[in-house]
Lab assay of single mutants.
Amino acid sequence: MQIFVKTLTGKTITLEVEPSDTIENVKAKIQDKEGIPPDQQRLIFAGKQLEDGRTLSDYNIQKDSTLHLVLR
């Protein structure tokens, strides 16, 4: 499925993911596309910070959802 990741600069990254993918996995995909190390990434969805060990389906993230990427 496709999800979107919006950065603070207003750029939107499109990712191909599975509901069973972990947040860690998603961060690795963002690193592949953007070169941002996962340890600098914070992903936010519906006002919640997403934890590495959980999956997209744990957070009820569905296709065409938009996550927000904050760098630390």
Rank of each mutant, 00 (worst) to 15 (best):
M1P: 02
M1D: 07
M1I: 07
Q2L: 11
Q2F: 09
Q2D: 11
I3T: 01
I3D: 00
I3L: 13
I3G: 00
I3Q: 00
F4M: 07
F4W: 07
F4N: 05
V5T: 02
V5S: 01
V5H: 00
V5E: 00
V5L: 13
V5D: 00
V5K: 00
K6R: 10
K6N: 15
K6Y: 13
K6E: 07
K6S: 08
T7S: 10
T7F: 06
T7I: 03
T7V: 09
T7P: 06
T7R: 05
L8M: 15
L8E: 15
T9W: 03
T9P: 05
G10N: 15
G10I: 05
G10P: 14
G10E: 03
K11L: 11
K11S: 07
K11F: 14
K11E: 08
T12N: 05
T12G: 08
T12A: 05
T12Y: 04
I13M: 04
I13R: 02
I13F: 14
I13G: 02
I13D: 02
I13Q: 09
T14Q: 05
T14R: 07
T14L: 05
T14P: 14
L15F: 14
L15E: 01
L15G: 00
L15P: 00
E16N: 13
E16W: 09
E16F: 14
E16Q: 12
E16A: 14
V17G: 02
V17I: 05
V17F: 12
V17H: 05
V17S: 10
E18D: 12
E18I: 06
P19R: 15
P19H: 08
P19V: 11
S20F: 12
S20G: 03
S20E: 04
S20I: 07
S20M: 12
D21T: 10
D21P: 00
D21V: 05
D21G: 12
D21R: 06
D21M: 04
T22S: 13
T22G: 05
I23A: 10
I23T: 04
E24H: 15
E24K: 13
E24L: 03
E24A: 04
N25D: 14
N25V: 12
N25Q: 12
V26E: 00
V26I: 11
V26A: 04
V26H: 00
V26L: 15
V26W: 01
V26N: 00
K27V: 07
K27W: 04
A28P: 01
A28L: 09
A28F: 14
A28S: 15
A28Y: 14
K29V: 14
K29I: 02
K29A: 15
I30T: 02
I30M: 11
I30Y: 05
I30Q: 00
I30P: 00
I30D: 00
Q31A: 10
Q31Y: 10
Q31T: 08
Q31P: 02
Q31G: 05
D32Y: 11
D32T: 09
D32A: 14
D32S: 11
K33M: 14
K33T: 11
K33Q: 11
K33D: 11
K33V: 14
K33I: 11
E34D: 08
E34G: 11
E34Y: 08
E34K: 02
G35F: 07
G35K: 13
I36R: 02
I36P: 03
I36L: 06
I36Y: 06
I36K: 07
P37L: 10
P37V: 07
P37K: 04
P37S: 13
P38L: 15
P38D: 12
P38V: 08
P38H: 13
P38S: 11
D39N: 10
D39Q: 11
D39V: 12
D39I: 15
D39T: 10
Q40F: 05
Q40A: 13
Q40M: 11
Q40S: 12
Q40H: 14
Q40R: 15
Q40Y: 13
Q40D: 06
Q40N: 13
Q40G: 06
Q40K: 13
Q41M: 11
Q41T: 05
Q41A: 13
Q41W: 05
R42F: 06
R42I: 14
R42N: 11
R42L: 10
R42G: 11
R42E: 12
R42Y: 15
L43Q: 00
L43P: 01
L43R: 00
L43S: 00
L43H: 01
I44A: 03
I44Q: 04
I44P: 00
I44H: 08
I44D: 08
I44V: 08
F45G: 03
F45M: 15
F45S: 12
F45N: 12
F45E: 02
F45L: 06
A46E: 12
A46I: 13
G47F: 12
G47S: 04
G47Y: 12
K48L: 03
K48Q: 11
K48T: 12
K48A: 09
K48G: 06
K48N: 03
K48M: 05
K48V: 13
K48P: 01
Q49E: 05
Q49N: 06
Q49H: 03
Q49Y: 14
Q49G: 15
L50V: 06
E51D: 15
E51F: 06
E51L: 06
E51P: 02
E51H: 06
E51T: 05
D52I: 07
D52W: 09
D52P: 09
D52S: 10
D52N: 07
D52H: 03
G53D: 09
G53K: 03
G53I: 12
G53H: 10
R54Q: 09
R54T: 10
R54S: 09
R54N: 04
R54M: 15
T55P: 10
T55W: 13
T55R: 15
T55N: 11
T55V: 08
L56V: 07
L56R: 00
L56D: 00
L56W: 01
L56S: 01
L56Y: 01
L56M: 06
S57L: 13
S57H: 08
S57N: 11
S57F: 06
S57Y: 13
S57Q: 08
D58A: 12
D58W: 06
D58R: 06
D58Y: 06
D58K: 09
Y59G: 01
Y59W: 02
Y59A: 13
Y59P: 00
Y59N: 14
Y59K: 01
Y59S: 13
N60R: 13
N60Q: 09
I61N: 00
I61K: 00
I61Q: 01
I61Y: 01
Q62F: 10
Q62D: 04
Q62A: 05
K63G: 13
K63H: 10
D64Q: 10
D64G: 07
D64P: 06
D64S: 07
D64L: 08
D64H: 09
D64R: 10
D64Y: 11
D64M: 10
S65F: 10
S65Y: 12
T66V: 04
T66N: 12
T66E: 06
T66H: 09
T66K: 06
L67P: 01
L67E: 01
L67T: 02
L67R: 01
L67S: 01
H68E: 12
H68R: 02
H68Q: 07
H68W: 02
L69H: 01
L69G: 01
L69T: 01
L69Q: 02
V70A: 09
V70G: 04
V70P: 01
V70S: 07
L71A: 15
L71I: 09
L71D: 07
L71W: 08
R72K: 05
R72S: 07
R72Q: 06
